[in-house]
Design a protein around this nucleic acid. Sequence first.
DNA 1: CTGAAAGCGCTAACAT
DNA 2: ATGTTAGCGCTTTCAG
Lengths: 306, 306
Amino acid sequence: MQDKAKEMNYQPNTLASNLRTQKSNTIGIIVPHITKYFFSTAISGIEEEAHEQGFNVIICQSKDSVELEAKNINTLMSSRVDGILISPAIETSSVEHIQTAINRNIPVFFFDRHIDSISTTKVITDDRSTSKELTLHLLSQNIKRMAVLTGDQSVSIYKNRVKGAFEAFQESGYNTEDKLIMQQIHLNMDDAYRVVNEMLDNKMEFDAVFAMNDMAAIGTQKALQDRGLRVPEDVLVAGFSNELISKLVSPPITTVHQPAKEIGKMATKKMVNYIKEKDKGLIASETTVLESKLIIRASTQRDKVE
Amino acid sequence: MQDKAKEMNYQPNTLASNLRTQKSNTIGIIVPHITKYFFSTAISGIEEEAHEQGFNVIICQSKDSVELEAKNINTLMSSRVDGILISPAIETSSVEHIQTAINRNIPVFFFDRHIDSISTTKVITDDRSTSKELTLHLLSQNIKRMAVLTGDQSVSIYKNRVKGAFEAFQESGYNTEDKLIMQQIHLNMDDAYRVVNEMLDNKMEFDAVFAMNDMAAIGTQKALQDRGLRVPEDVLVAGFSNELISKLVSPPITTVHQPAKEIGKMATKKMVNYIKEKDKGLIASETTVLESKLIIRASTQRDKVE
DNA sequence: CTGAAAGCGCTAACAT
DNA sequence: ATGTTAGCGCTTTCAG
């Protein structure tokens, strides 16, 4: 009787439930930029998985600033989120704000970018080994000298990608001092364009460029082509992350596909699981490594074209 | 004394406050796909503005499905969001779920895509007039016949873009039956590629293509080039939305830049304002039209190149 | 096994 | 002006 009346259009008040249980059924997300395809795809995975498990997601952007990131963490803490998934800002000098949240018993898990010194659950990709694989592919084309355009080496993912490239050189018995030029840049199209032009102005010699993300690879390719150099005939070009655009430029660019959506889903699964198990005292931090995949396209193939 | 002790690290419990005030200080967002650049950019604007005003944002994707959209609305209602910003799904046949929320006194505002039959606040762009402007630009190049690739005409934005194109023809005194070919497609790269090839197979004649989004324009351009036709020498190609990629393909594509971030910010301002004024009974729905901007690139310029 | 009662931590109304 | 108290609607506990 009452039951039926209730079933008609009874809506339990989540606010009251949240207060009583001290749980918000909400997961906070912090990413550098929502508009980057990798992150929006990861968020898409997080959103799907979270909703399936009855959790909401609150989104924050750090704009790659530690200050904003700290603010975001405060916002999320005061919203009483049950956990935080974060891909931290570039400048990871200070990690207090993250420790603060953890100390307050709010789980903070990393996805993609991560901070080694903080012991918590992480869901990352095997950037190092795929970067190595890509470099071996470049070396197999008898290149004389390879330029690497990398980002801030304090960012885990860039550090690992560089590490992989070095490993490939060492494994192949090549001298990295002779055959490798390292350039740290802002990994975007404009800066890559500028730096490659500078390198050419300075008569640096190289016949392959491995940029640590696709936008930088595209800027590189454009710079080379504007100077009359052909890709891949004169210089090979490779990127990283498999942005949509990387297969649409001419020639399409060899890159590494990262399972962004799966990373998001996996991180969410780990988090939800942790939240549910937390009460039972089962706390263990683990690092999950998802496989990324080398995608070879025309920009690094001298013989056949995709 | 106590004050100081409290100031040290007192964190008011938002959950309790929310229950007491019956407000969540949260705005719900529903978009078709987070991963589309336009939407992630709009969300970025919403996030910034909302946080500035002390509101959180919960994000949902409808995947362009009315069922999922209805589910999202339920999720947001049960989360007791103070308002919902929505860019509705393609198939807007049923609008009950949106009406339900409005009837329950939860404000639902539209941004970008919108449903005319629902009377509420809307923040949109002047697609029609910019589409007209773009078409006039094409007509000024003495084209003989223009093909329009459009999406579902029940979607407000596509309908308005087509309307603008028609207006340009009429204003110029051209007969749309002779000079205009309309093709309704799925507005993505692959479908555009397929349809343009079909049109060429069927010996349809046209020397300009206006695709109602950039990805379709890129598919069009690729199809034309693969058949040995030159852009812009043989066929002009124009798109819509100014995706990042549209200026990176070869030739760069003429398109319309929409102020995605500003749309998000404006919609959020209207919503926050409404939420604050609601108690005072000041309810008025208004439609704000933001200006978009024609960006002419090489794909539609026979004389000079950008 | 069903039903009443206490309490989560705040805010708003009321009384001092 | 300041201090006290009731109550938001759930969940959990405790009594019947």
